[in-house]
Every structure is written in C-alpha cells, then in structure tokens.
Amino acid sequence: MIAIKIGTADRRDGDIDARWITDQVNARRREGKKICVLFKVNCGDVNLNLPSRDYPKAGGGGRKPNVNEEFILDEWRKMGFPDQNLNPGMVVSFWEFVKQICD
C-alpha cells in the first residue's frame, strides 16, 4: 500500500497519478500555502511514514529501519525531501520510485 497526503487531500494506491500530485502541489503553491506531503509506504517488510520538511510534526520511529526501509530512506534523503521546498517533479519521482519497489 502506498498513500500520499498533500495538504488535506489524500489518495492511495491506484488512485494516485502524476497529474493528481502535480495539481495538488501547484494548488497549494498558488494559495501561498506550505507544501506538506506525507508518504505512507506499507508493502512487504516496509512500513514507513515519510513526512516532508513542512509537514506537521508527528511521533514516529521507535525502531531501527530494516534494509529495505533504509534503501527507501536513502532515496528520500537524496531527493532532498527533509531539506528542500518541494516541487511536483520531486513528489512524482519519489512516488514512481516507491511504486517500483512495492510492485
């Protein structure tokens, strides 16, 4: 299962597409709102909640990531999610990356 929450809008699995992601990110940018994104990835031995930099803080962690989770977290960091302002391309790219892992 992959779920993405962008602001107050959320979708999961087959309801997610690049156009929806782009529309949601751009709508928040036009409204002058922070781009808050939360990825929830739960497939195989992967169980991650990945909030973007501006996502409201929530509890998390509690255990060390396994090898597959660490692989996804490394890509998350490489793409700059914890540190950068988001753009639609970043969100779409990460979604496509995670989708490949979970399929």
Rank of each mutant, 00 (worst) to 15 (best):
K34Y: 01
L50P: 02
E70G: 12
E69Y: 01
R53D: 06
G60L: 07
I6A: 15
W20L: 11
A18G: 14
E31G: 10
A18F: 00
F39M: 07
F39D: 04
E31W: 00
V37Y: 02
M79N: 09
D54C: 15
I72S: 03
N87D: 11
C102I: 04
D23W: 01
G61L: 09
G32W: 00
G7I: 07
N47T: 14
A58E: 11
G80W: 00
G14W: 01
R19M: 05
V25D: 02
N26K: 14
K57L: 06
T22M: 06
I21S: 04
S93Q: 15
N49P: 01
D45S: 12
A27M: 05
P51H: 10
D74H: 10
R63I: 04
T8R: 13
K78F: 02
E70T: 14
P88C: 05
K78D: 11
D15H: 10
W95L: 08
R29H: 09
W95G: 08
L86F: 01
K5W: 01
F94Y: 07
P51S: 15
N42Y: 02
F39Y: 08
E75I: 10
C36D: 12
W20C: 12
I16E: 04
G61T: 13
L50S: 03
V92S: 04
R11N: 10
N85V: 07
D83W: 05
K57Y: 00
V91A: 02
M79G: 02
E31F: 02
F39I: 08
I72P: 01
D83H: 14
E75A: 14
R11S: 09
R63D: 05
A18I: 03
V25F: 03
M90V: 05
D10Y: 06
A3Y: 05
C102T: 04
D15G: 15
L73Q: 07
G89F: 04
K57W: 03
I21L: 12
R77W: 00
F81Q: 08
I2K: 11
Q84A: 15
S93N: 15
E75D: 04
W95E: 06
V25T: 10
D83V: 08
M1E: 04
G80M: 07
V91T: 03
I6Q: 10
K40I: 14
I72A: 06
G60R: 11
A3N: 06
T8E: 12
D83K: 14
A27F: 01
E69R: 05
